[in-house]
Design a protein around this nucleic acid. Structure first.
Lengths: 356, 356
DNA sequence: GCGCAAGATTGGATCGATCCAAGGGGGCAG
DNA sequence: CTGCCCCCTTGGATCGATCCAATCTTGCGC
């Protein structure tokens, strides 16, 4: 062991020259092109030759250099993903991790970029394409009138979005989570538990995601023949959620509240605790963040690993499609799953919160 | 505006050929090399010529292609960073965001990779270096006997670690947060508030980070002439933290507890709430995660933006250092800052938690 | 035994930048 | 006027892969 380390250290003084197609070819006694064929189009090569070349490849530890390949073919095996400000978004971060994994399985890597604004992002695209030759882009935080995917289409850059386009201009593939189904399921669970006055703490109406989740609550209430009180809508911060919670509790307090996000849900929790109100109000959040888990808060969990898997698949298929990408874009809507914890169970039955 | 869009759309049918050194040279009426000089060594070029070339560059929107540059020079302007499993680590994610920003300021991009094990990571290094020609690597989660930085050194790959090497084998630059100073400051604040029986809820002893933070608590206690009860040590999960909290509270309960992490701190909070114990116990966490903020938990905040900035600077300086990198490695230890919230203030004075 | 097609292998040109050494032109001293 | 040097500019070779067309083998029918 010690010897091995010493040997390695010595070798460092003369860094071993990287194996190339030529060096492999020379060792195997064939031409450059044959080695390339063994790697890329094995069916063209006689099995015995291929065998010999394979041995040379392994002996030298050859790995095709992507810069050279890229220069000739334009493929980089890089996928761009925009990352937002430092205040972490738990959902995005989980997606990022899952996407990195999913892409790696097909030998692609994620390259991150930042941009202060959506308009600046267009410039960032061009730079990534021109300079890094990225093969495709995954867009997140789509919104109505989003021009980003169109711009990518005109540049011919494959792209997939996590998040549906909220207008009907979808010429690209997308993957999204069916928030409406999630809040509907959550609301139905509350109804089944006997709740009748169920409120909704949502986001302002300009948020399509928020409106969608609100619709799920409305669906369940309507189907159960229950009255939909006007939802309270606030920005996605703990403080504004608390003011919303106060408003909601002050006038004919509901017995249960479905929330558009965990942050909003925690706003209610905090408000209930601070005001010394009865803790009998059931609460369900959305996103199943770690903070929800640690607070025993029921929450709708987004299947982010699946989302990332589909994103990677759709994008890479698009990248590797031989020619004329006339294939119709795919739209994938995944169902989220309610994770039931103490916060939505009847208080008299609730055992001490057990985190998963 | 509509016309502009139409024009763009039309242009997409015949994707505009990317500008190259040659096309710029032809337009400016100079040679390829002169254009290259304008970009890389402007002092060699006559000002008027440079001016003309600059105009051509802007007119064509030329951007040097990195694949070609990389093929010739081996530089890719890519920095590798390993990303861990999908269960997000808030500290890592904040660091990741900040690092992406800091690197972008110097025109470097972050490329992510995964690896199931540390040994596998060595293989991942080689692949990134051989195939993607990455310029350097930022390592996180360093530990005693970490062979990764040595391996990179033998391969001649610049590297910086976020986290000090816990043995004295430091031949590379590193940046770390002075956890010991953080817990010491937290403890001192509690002492100043009148607490005398202050416990520590830590991690098992194999964790160097945990031991370091524990030492800070010990320092403060010793300097104040207070008795150090034996710390309780558990793994970093909410559940095991709760068992630890129970043990700590059952025998001569402290009036305040310093915790090695926010997760541990929340374990105590949960246990106190569930058991219906007095809420007068002051608690301080570590990491200042969002869940700490939303629970009104005081916590020691790591200056991750500064850490990332230093990491980027040290690594990129190393990458761009002209030759013989005989410069001594730099070690940077940054002081964290205690964020004081309701959980560590005397209960009788505490106003409703105000999240920042 | 010959020709011809299919199968297997080869060398040259190429992607777009940089490195290197050599080439022109202007100024100044001899 | 010539020579020399310095400043600026230029073309050729190169990095390591792929594309393309040409060449060499091999097998098989007639």
């Amino acid at each position: 062991m010690t010897d091995a380390i010493a040997a390695t250290t010595t070798a460092a003084l003369v860094p071993p020259p990287r194996a190339t197609l030529d060096s492999v070819a020379k060792l195997a006694g064939v031409s450059r092109q044959t080695v390339s064929n063994v790697i890329n189009t094995p069916q063209l090569v006689k099995p015995e030759t291929a065998e010999r070349v394979q041995q040379a490849i392994e002996q030298l530890g050859y790995r095709p250099n992507l810069a050279a390949k890229r220069l000739r073919t334009g493929q980089s095996r890089l996928i761009g993903l925009r990352i937002f400000g430092v205040d972490g978004d738990a959902v995005f971060d989980r997606f990022l991790h899952a996407l990195t994994d999913a892409a790696a399985l097909r030998d692609y890597r994620i390259i991150l970029y930042t941009s202060p604004t959506d308009e600046g992002e267009i410039g960032a695209f061009d730079e990534l394409v021109d300079r890094w030759d990225i093969d495709g882009i995954v867009l997140t935080s789509t919104h109505r009138g989003d021009v980003r995917s169109d711009h990518l289409a005109t540049r011919g850059v494959p792209c997939v979005t996590f998040g549906r386009p909220w207008d009907d201009s979808a010429r690209h593939s997308w993957v999204d989570v069916d928030g409406r189904a999630g809040t509907k399921a959550a609301t139905e669970t509350l109804i089944a538990a006997g709740h009748r006055r169920i409120g909704f703490l949502g986001w302002p109406l300009y948020s399509d995601v928020g409106t969608d989740r609100e619709a799920g609550w409305r669906d369940a209430m309507r189907e159960a023949g229950l009255d939909c009180r006007e939802p309270v809508r606030r920005d996605n911060t703990l403080d504004s959620a608390r003011t919303g919670a106060r408003e909601m509790l002050d006038t004919e307090a509901p017995t249960a509240v479905v929330c558009v996000s965990d942050v909003m849900a925690l706003g209610i929790v905090a408000e209930l605790a601070a005001e010394g109100r009865p803790t009998g109000i059931a609460i369900v959040g959305f996103d199943n963040s770690t903070v929800a888990a640690s607070n025993g808060l029921s929450s709708v969990d987004q299947p982010l690993v699946a989302v990332a898997g589909h994103c990677a698949r759709l994008l890479i298929d698009q990248i590797e499609r031989p020619t004329s990408s006339t294939a119709a874009p795919e739209r994938i809507l995944l169902a989220p799953k309610l994770i039931s914890r103490a916060s939505s169970r009847p208080p008299d039955l609730s055992p001490p919160a057990n985190s998963p």
